[in-house]
Amino acid sequence: MSWEYIKFDKNEHVAKIIFNNPQKNNALNILMRSEFSEVLNACSIDDEIKVVIITTNSENFCSGADLSEFNTFPSIVESNLISKNNNLWKDLYNFEKPIICLTKGWVIGSGFEIIMLSDFVFSHTSSIFKMPEVELSLTPISGGTQTFLNKTNIAIAKEIMLFSEEIDVYKAYNFGIINFYSDDYNILIEQVRKFTENIKTIDLKRLKIVKKLLNLSTEENLYLGKHWEQYYSTTLR
């Protein structure tokens, strides 16, 4: 299958979802989001795939939502229902396999929120992170107000979302937003390769459960979380 704004590549256990809208700096339009969702669902049911890498084939990872499509939806109610029922961001959050984002250039708005929904982020030093919503009289809609607190603290979440300031990779690393950075993109690719190579030997079921439990630690109270850990640990024996 082929898509207009997404390129897909599968090599053994590693799937690559590549944003391919370079004319608009990978701004996410409606079709691109729908293609992204379709590819993600395909990765979810393909048992050969153990890890998904989300990246770009151009200079920028993602410049956020395509603003040219704004104010074109006929009804606010309809738009609200569609985004709630067919929500790519929830699919990303609930995606059971590890997701790695490999970024460079702009990581703006929904682009930033995508990396916050992923599990590991490898960034080139050219990466610029920004949440410009309040500057544009918008609020985040791709889970940003909820997922930032899963990775960093409330003071940093508010600093990023209320002040709309750009942050670089060094700050992003200190804030706990990215896992690794380098000024050499090839080194970064090699790091990601090593990382995915390690995942190759791990049992997929175990990988999914551990990811689920770790995400649960930000959702449930400690005792319920511990209960689920014991339950899954016992069932895996």
Partner: peptide, 23 residues
Amino acid sequence: SAINFSKDTNTIRGMNMENDLYS
């Protein structure tokens, strides 16, 4: 308001609230 709400709810419920505020 959405960021503060995220401390007291799970992520999916919070995302629904974020969606409503956006709308």
